[in-house]
Design a protein around this nucleic acid. Structure first.
Lengths: 69, 69
DNA sequence: TTATTATGTCAAGTGTCTTTTACATTTATT
DNA sequence: AATAAATGTAAAAGACACTTGACATAATAA
């Protein structure tokens, strides 16, 4: 799974701290998502999507390797 | 968070086993999601949405209580 | 009524998401 | 060049998603 979080953040000139605060997680969580260390929970994905005014699928791009949970 | 999984399953006359097999989890997982014991992971939510030909937000309905992760 | 199918509970175990804390590096500003 | 802001790493701990296995009940069919 790929995410467009970092790209969207830069397009909108938002820092990791600002996004983290907005969706109520720590900055570490944002870093980990952007660096692909792990995948967001459903609720967090929803909050991030809401923050950017997009649908979850517009930000989190699923690929073949997501056959595994 | 509420889910429309059970409703969609019945509309489409799909059993828990069939859905579980289709999205590659155990039946217990489907039961737990339907009964609200826990929330799906992002990838599982995506697979279920794909299975029903809908967007994640059409199946998983987020509410105020989802302020917490 | 008996057998089968579908749905449900419970509990223990594994792995992953998220937090916290502390520190390092890069980029921008002055 | 020095300071601050933004981004990064690492590791431990807690919470939650998912599995497995065993068994119980409800609904449907033979």
């Amino acid at each position: 799974m790929e995410t467009r979080i970092q790209a969207l953040r830069k397009e909108n000139k938002v820092t990791q701290n600002e996004l983290a605060d907005a969706v109520d997680v720590t900055r570490q969580t944002i870093i980990s998502l952007e660096r692909g260390r792990y995948k967001a929970s459903l609720v967090l994905a929803h909050k991030i999507a809401q923050y950017f005014g997009l649908a979850i699928e517009d930000i989190f791009v699923f690929d073949q390797e997501d056959e595994n949970i």
